[in-house]
Design a protein around this nucleic acid. Structure first.
Length: 350
DNA sequence: AAACAAGCCAACCGCATGTTC
DNA sequence: AGAACATGCGGTTGGCTTGTT
């Protein structure tokens, strides 16, 4: 069944996204929600393929994305999860709610893989580990991908089931979403990994994620101003968003005529936040999003990571996990102890 | 200061899977 | 049932940045 690629159209733009394009895309999604990517290029006038739009949204513009350096804890999470799940970046990313799979993948390939390799060669001689793409899991053995996945999933399902059966609904204190060390809920484990992606849209997202989105936009605008002082003169040949010419400086109050975006909700919710200073990430948070209309809030609840805070349980950790987390426990305190205690409660069951 | 190399990461590509008709 | 379409995922690439010679 020959499927033609989505990007085979002539005139499709490739390469880095411009701030104008970002704004157009975010503006559109603000009004229509993520999804139906096929129609995005035609409705916005963006000279991008639908896939590119989706990718740009999920990897960069989507609310709740944290960028920049990975914390020590995040590193350990990645190392651990990679050992556990293999190169299933989406699944790994689901345990790091603020990171995209692409980010994690890049970070793994550029930092962690090398570091582990170095570490491994340092202690070489006492191991017969297969490398497994950076090889960090001692017990891995040559297995087919599917077999390996299946094994992992069965293991996780067992853990989840065990958790559900052995623990009552012990209320658990979780850190805020903005903490780096969210722990998976039992729901996410049950859903994970195969159904995880599908459940993303169902899991309500913390309202505070909106701040991060505003931050993303603010950042891109900032970069835009930095890189091209004359960028306001740039135009998109097919589509000029009302905010395009005023983004950054006067956009906070400007509500020029919308050509294809009659609703100005976006301008309010995003750019009004950027009014006097560039650091919106500090000023926008739950309170701000509380003022959003249901549509606006639900929009940014749509395509996000699963809500790892959801539910009241976390998944038992293996000894390896314990080892990986124990260092983080020293720095992050009580939330990690939650997992350790669960580990103890389920140790030896499997 | 220029040339080159290495690192990094955003974006692309192709395949797999799910959904709709 | 199966073709067409939509979306998700992981591997890879290209270009920009930074470091080194």
């Amino acid at each position: 069944m020959g499927r033609h690629p989505c990007c085979d159209k002539i005139g499709i733009k490739k390469g880095p996204w411009t701030p104008e394009e970002d704004i157009i895309l975010v503006s559109y999604i603000q009004q229509h929600g993520p999804g139906n990517w096929r129609s995005v290029p035609t409705n916005t006038g963006l000279l991008r393929c639908s896939k590119s739009c989706r990718l740009r949204w999920t990897n960069y513009l989507r609310p709740g994305i944290k960028r920049g350096n990975f914390s020590d804890h995040e590193e350990k999470m990645i190392i651990h999860l990679q050992a556990l799940l293999g190169n299933r970046w989406a699944a790994i990313a689901s345990y790091l709610p603020q990171r995209t799979d692409n980010d994690i993948k890049n970070y793994w390939n550029t930092h962690l893989k090398k570091r582990l390799k170095k570490l491994q060669t340092g202690i070489e001689g006492n191991s017969g580990h297969d490398d497994q793409d950076g090889g960090s899991f001692p017990s891995s053995q040559p297995k087919g991908q599917w077999e390996r996945r299946l094994q992992t999933d069965i293991h996780m399902a067992k853990q989840a089931l065990c958790e559900a059966l052995s623990l009552d609904n012990k209320p658990t204190q979780f850190p805020s979403l903005h903490a780096d060390h969210s722990k998976p809920s039992i729901n996410s484990f049950i859903n994970n990994p195969y159904t995880m992606a599908k459940t993303r849209s169902l899991a309500p997202y913390q309202s505070s994620s909106y701040a991060s989105s505003a931050d993303n936009i603010a950042r891109l605008l900032e970069n835009w101003k930095k890189k091209s002082p004359n960028s306001s003169a740039q135009t998109n040949s097919d589509f000029v968003h009302p905010t395009t010419t005023t983004a950054g400086s006067s956009s906070s109050t400007d509500q020029g005529p919308a050509s294809t975006t009659p609703d100005h909700a976006f301008d309010h919710s995003f750019f009004s936040l950027n009014s006097s200073n560039s650091d919106v990430s500090q000023s926008v948070s739950v309170d701000e999003t509380a003022n959003l209309t249901p549509d606006q809030t639900s929009l940014f609840q749509d395509e996000t990571k699963p809500n790892l805070m959801e539910g009241s349980k976390v998944v038992p950790l293996t000894l390896l996990e314990k080892w990986l987390f124990e260092d983080a426990a020293a720095t992050h305190g009580h939330e990690d102890l939650i997992n350790l205690s669960l580990e103890e409660s389920t140790a030896g069951l499997f």
